[in-house]
Design a protein around this nucleic acid. Structure first.
Length: 607
RNA sequence: GGGGCAGUAGCUCAGCUGGAUAGAGCACCUGAUUUCUAAUCCGGUGGUCGGGGGUUCGAGUCCCUCCUGCCCUACCA
């Protein structure tokens, strides 16, 4: 009895100790990097000239490789293989390394690390739940407060496919940052002020269809705005009336403001319907109107700190040190005295700094605005420096445009842009047909649920999986494809894994680590290795703010799993084999679930 | 005129910032004891990485140059 308690106590101590030891291996690349730096020091290398350069290796050579010997030897004009040999000798004095991996030198001086199967078992035991992952990952960005500005539609207009990238990419970035420990504020900088309101109000007051407004507020507002533009284009008198409406609004006339507020309320409600479908929720909607009383401070401070100057009647900022912006001005006040987007964007920088205490500001827009944001960043840097403010890191997360086959902006058959809600509806419809065909026995409620998840997931994944900076040729088939490197492929892998666990009795799912034997087959090792790579993929994704890096990884993981699944039967007689394979299944599922949720994609129990 | 982005397999794209024999998906050609979900897997066909020079142990990746396409370039956002 006493013996048993002692044994169990010892086992617990072991577990704790061992988890502490494994803890530093969460990020294998980082661990190898710091080991390499220690080794470089021990080997007597000039550490100021040494950079480890750790990366996943080609499986033919090893699991990870340290390539730092080559550039080091180049800089010092010595033999790279000798440098590598010195490093390996130093590495081999480090027990924490030699017990888990075999080292070898190859080619001109690559140092390959081949992990022992036991290492993978230990890693999989140490990082077993979402909170294990989150706890370790949340140290990456724990001291950051980030405002992410994405979405940015205009009021009184429906969103079309052109808006999808900002929403989907922006949301993925928010989730990634949050997972890595940052405090994130999601801010939708809507276009809710300015010239379109004159025309909208003119038409609203004369041609409003009340019932249409109740049924489809955004549709009706959009119709009215178009009507107003049309009428103003045809008739000078109408145009004058539109201008009058606008003047009233800008003077904040109570009647105009009441109507403006109503339009905004309806618009945001309409936008939220679509965001709900995409599982996106913003913390705030601080649009252009919010900053209209904050522009004077921008003019004053930029003028007082000698950044802004008068040029051709406008207030502008030049950057003499820049080859381009020395000549190309950043116009912060137009010659008619009105503000523009440069003004409001500067005001947002200040507000996000002061109100949210942001350490980082991320703005997600298309790449045509690259110049604008470069100028914004340069200007903010100088402005904040001269006024003694700490400047947040600024990232312009830009993306390429979506075009038709001809390279022009995409249009539906009627000539209007394809509405986002129509795209989503079609995706769900197509998914429904596929699910029903593949799995006719499911209840209708479950069918609907699966179709929803698969359809929306497919759209998001199609938008996240290409490199965001590339242009994008729109095609229904590509956005709604369910084959190949798509969300359904990843979801299918999760469904298969869960199906395995459904086959098991309760006790078979418990205490797997105790029963598991050491990983053995090529497919098992390959899968374990791929799971461990999750952390590196996460790092690369967040450092570059490029979600496609995570997509690429998840697709590889699902592929490695599928290969494992067909080659190695999981539910088998031998208890040890079954247990170790179940662990692999459960960790694959974990990595897929975390990864997909970071991309904003929901997972399924079955499909 | 100036600046930027891009050009990789028939098509759509990756290629982690200079690493080993350039990879996926689609399409095409083949297979897979009726199985823990075949929305899968194993093979195969397919490449002068736009052309030409250069830098070095090593270039799709860096530099120069030319070709092609797109975007920005003073008051739209």
């Amino acid at each position: 009895m006493l013996q048993d308690s002692i044994r169990s106590l010892l086992a617990q101590c072991n577990t704790i100790l061992y988890r502490l030891l494994m803890h530093e291996w969460f990020d294998v690349e980082k661990k190898l990097e710091s080991s390499a730096n220690v080794a470089a020091c021990a080997a007597g290398l000039d550490t100021t000239m040494f950079s480890a350069d750790v990366r996943p290796a080609d499986p033919r050579f090893g699991d990870f490789q340290v390539n730092g010997a080559l550039p080091y030897a180049k800089r010092l004009k010595t033999n790279p293989r000798e440098v590598a040999q010195k490093l390996v000798t130093a590495f081999e004095k480090d027990n924490s390394l030699t017990t888990v991996a075999d080292l070898s030198i190859a080619g001109p001086g690559f140092i390959n690390f081949k992990f022992k199967p036991q290492f993978y078992s230990n890693w999989l035991a140490a990082f077993a739940t979402e909170s294990d992952f989150k706890e370790s990952a949340s140290r990456f960005y724990s001291d950051e407060r980030v405002v992410v500005d994405y979405g940015s539609p205009n009021t009184a207009k429906q969103m079309h496919v052109g808006h999808i990238r900002s929403v989907v990419i922006g949301e993925a970035i928010c989730r990634l940052l949050e997972f890595c420990g940052a405090k994130v504020t999601r801010d939708n900088h809507i276009g809710d002020w300015g010239t379109p309101y004159g025309k909208l109000f003119f038409a609203y007051k004369r041609h409003l269809d009340e019932s249409a407004l109740t049924e489809d507020p955004l549709g009706e507002l959009e119709r009215l705005y178009k009507l107003g533009s049309e009428l103003a284009g045809e008739d000078e008198a109408v145009l004058d009336e539109c201008r009058e409406e606008l003047v009233k609004l800008q003077a904040e006339d109570p009647g105009a403001m009441a109507l403006w507020e109503k339009v905004n309320e309806l618009s945001i409600a309409g936008l939220k319907d679509v965001y709900d479908q995409l599982d996106v929720t913003f913390d705030c909607y601080l649009g252009e109107s919010f900053y209209r009383d904050k522009v004077q401070q921008v003019y004053d401070e930029l003028s007082d700190s000698d950044l802004a100057e008068e040029s051709k009647g406008a207030l502008v900022v030049f950057h003499p040190e820049h080859k381009r912006y020395a000549k190309q001005p950043f116009i912060i006040r137009k010659s008619d005295g009105a503000s523009n987007y440069a003004t409001t964007d500067l005001a947002t920088m200040l507000y996000r700094h002061e109100h949210f205490n942001a350490t980082r500001i991320v703005i997600v827009t298309d790449d045509r605005q690259k110049d604008h944001f470069e100028q914004l960043d340069l200007t903010t840097a100088k402005w904040f420096e001269r006024t003694g403010r700490e400047r947040p890191i600024f990232n312009h997360v830009m993306f390429g445009k979506i075009t038709g086959e001809d390279g022009k902006p995409i249009k539906s058959r009627s000539g209007d842009p394809i509405r986002l809600k129509d795209l989503i509806a079609e995706a769900i419809e197509r998914a429904y047909a596929v699910v029903k065909e593949k799995n006719p026995d499911l209840s209708d409620a479950e069918l609907e649920h699966i179709a929803q998840t698969v359809g929306v997931g497919a759209i998001k994944y199609a938008d996240l999986s290409p490199n965001r900076t590339s242009d994008y040729v729109f095609s229904w088939d590509k956005l709604l494809s369910f084959e190949g490197n798509t969300a359904p492929y990843l979801l299918y892998a999760t469904a298969r894994i869960q199906s395995i666990f459904r086959k098991l009795e309760g006790p078979q799912k418990e205490g797997l680590e105790k029963r598991a034997s050491t990983l053995e087959t090529d497919e098992e090792i390959a899968l374990a290795r791929k799971i461990v790579e999750f952390v590196g993929a996460l790092q690369t994704t967040i450092e570059t703010l490029r979600p496609h890096m995570l997509c690429l990884y998840l697709h590889e993981l699902a592929g490695t799993f599928s290969a494992f699944y067909s080659a190695n039967k999981v539910i088998v007689e031998e208890e040890g084999v079954q247990a170790r394979r179940l662990i692999l299944c459960s960790r694959t599922l974990l990595a897929l679930k975390i990864g997909l949720s970071l991309l904003g994609i929901k997972t399924l129990e079955r499909m």
